[in-house]
Amino acid sequence: MAKTDMKISVRNLHKKLGPRQVLRGIDLDVAKGQSLVVIGGSGSGKSVMLKCIIGLMKADKGEVVVDGRNIARHTEADRRFMTKQSGMLFQGSALFDSLRIWENVAFRLLHAEKSSRKAAQKKAMECLAQVGLAPEVGDLTPSELSGGMQKRVSLARAIASDPQILFFDEPTTGLDPIMADVINNLIVERVKALGATAISITHDMASARKIADEIAMLYQGCIIWRGKPDEIGNSDNPMVDQFVNGRAEGPITMSVKHV
């Protein structure tokens, strides 16, 4: 496929953190309006990869091309270009705990886009409704909500400015299966409604199957497999097999010390 069809192209991305070479040459392409899910074990560098793409971390080497513009040099303008059109749901929700829920959702409108408080509150309430939360929730603070509700608020905050690119970092981790499925449905629905391009990270296979147009697997800092969700069951890749079936025995070894 020609490079220009791609909303996001990642080329040869490297990142070292402390003594550890976390990313060793990531290559990824996501076409406009597609939803890519990246799976991989805990600590395999999924969050680091996402942070390098969105511009929260500076990659050591490689390119991140968004709409034909390489933003990996990480200048002020690059970061503004990226944040302007993207939204992210963080692994731990990362809601501002000193602010009320509606102020969280409307944060960008209030402080970056200079909307009036009234207009921002109205938009926040709409977004809360879109993720299935009652208007009363708007006046609570994050600590008064359950984990599942916090994820919903975080989703509402990410979509509040109608972004073209969405990033989801383990949106369902730590939720019960039913709530996880609710979040998955919301993600699929919202991404479709916005026509957005999405990159999600998860180690929850049910979630991956549900929200992915394509799945890629990250292992030891590289993308080792990529395919459609229905192909992942017979990928002919022993590492993917082991991950999908959740076996402790196989080519992937967790460094667990046996006593």
């Binding site: 990362a94 402080h111 905050r157």
Partner: peptide, 25 residues
């Protein structure tokens, strides 16, 4: 304590992704 908690719970990062510079805010 406030800013440190926001840092380790990724609230500072979240602020950046919402186009608000944590330095200014």
């Amino acid at each position: 304590a406030e800013i440190g908690t926001m840092r380790v719970t990724e609230q500072v990062d979240a602020m950046s992704t919402l186009a608000v510079d944590p330095f200014k805010y």
